[in-house]
Simulated assay, not measured.
Amino acid sequence: MTYSHPKLLVAIDCLVFGYDLSEESLNILAFQRKVEPYAGDWSLIGSFINEGEDMSQAARRVLKQFTGLDDVFLEQLHVYGNADRDPGGHVLSILHWSLIKLDDLHKETAEKHGARWFPIDQMPELVLDHGDMVQLGMQKLVTNAKTRPLGFELLPEEFTLPQLKRLYDAIYGRQLDDRNFRKRMLSTELLEKLDKKDKSTSKKGAFLHKFNKEKYEELAEKGYLLDLDVK
């Protein structure tokens, strides 16, 4: 038996964040559409869900198609369902958000689809309601960064505390207090201090650290939440 009700289209849109260490900027991945409506305009990466395809499978497919990555942070964020949101028809969009390391992006894969990084403050105008999606994603990122170690998804495996602090400055959109941030971050006991330094910015250098994911997962099972609401 099949339903006779008129069908609507269901799409997956992915809001992908990356962080540029050298420029200290939070970036978003966008691509130029190749089909109408809005051919040539900038859009978040996305695709329609194929018949028989699960939503989570579709989201992973879209992410891998545009970035070449699949084993990265990806979560559903929101559903956009206004009947007139897309001039091409009644399209329901299921927004997902992802955090990836900038250098992990497969450049050839991204270029094949016309995708590129944009600093958050230099984003071109996006099609449809994708600008609203970016704003919602930023709000979600700020809220989650206070209680979950999402920042580590955006950094290389080894990093300095100043680099970590500048990342959180970019996420919060303001300069955090150095002393309070260091104190809060070290108190989590989720950082492993390494016996080597990054001397790329000074002769003295800064000790490198790495995130102890196993420790965090162990604590998370017990209901542990980070407390990084730094003033």
Rank of each mutant, 00 (worst) to 15 (best):
T109Q: 13
T109H: 04
A110F: 07
A110E: 10
E111H: 14
K112T: 14
G114Q: 01
A115C: 11
A115K: 02
R116T: 08
W117V: 09
F118T: 06
F118Y: 14
F118C: 04
F118A: 04
F118S: 11
I120Q: 12
I120T: 02
I120H: 09
I120Y: 06
D121L: 13
Q122N: 11
Q122M: 12
Q122D: 13
Q122S: 10
Q122R: 15
M123F: 14
M123P: 01
M123S: 08
M123G: 05
P124N: 07
E125Q: 15
E125F: 10
V127D: 09
V127E: 08
L128E: 09
D129V: 14
D129C: 07
D129E: 12
H130L: 02
G131Q: 09
G131W: 10
G131Y: 09
M133E: 11
Q135G: 05
Q135R: 13
L136K: 10
L136H: 08
L136Q: 07
G137S: 05
G137K: 02
M138V: 14
M138F: 09
Q139C: 07
K140R: 12
L141A: 03
L141N: 03
L141W: 08
L141T: 08
V142C: 11
T143L: 06
T143W: 08
A145N: 07
A145M: 04
A145E: 05
K146A: 04
K146E: 14
R148F: 10
P149F: 03
P149L: 05
P149H: 07
P149S: 13
L150K: 01
L150A: 10
F152E: 04
E153I: 01
E153Q: 13
L154Y: 02
L154F: 05
L154G: 03
L155M: 15
P156E: 06
E157R: 09
E157P: 05
E157N: 12
E158T: 11
E158M: 13
F159C: 04
T160R: 02
T160D: 00
L161I: 15
L161Q: 00
P162I: 12
L164E: 01
L164P: 02
K165H: 15
K165Y: 08
L167M: 09
D169F: 08
D169Y: 05
A170T: 04
I171T: 06
G173F: 05
Q175S: 15
Q175E: 15
Q175I: 06
L176W: 07
L176D: 12
D178T: 13
D178Y: 10
R179L: 03
R179A: 04
N180A: 11
N180E: 14
F181T: 00
F181A: 00
R182P: 01
R182C: 01
R182E: 10
K183T: 10
K183E: 11
M185F: 00
M185Q: 00
L186F: 03
L186D: 04
L186I: 09
L186N: 11
T188F: 00
E189V: 10
E189A: 15
L190V: 03
L190Q: 01
L191C: 06
E192M: 11
E192H: 08
K193W: 01
K193D: 12
L194C: 06
D195E: 14
D195V: 06
K196C: 13
K196R: 15
K196Y: 08
K196P: 01
K196I: 00
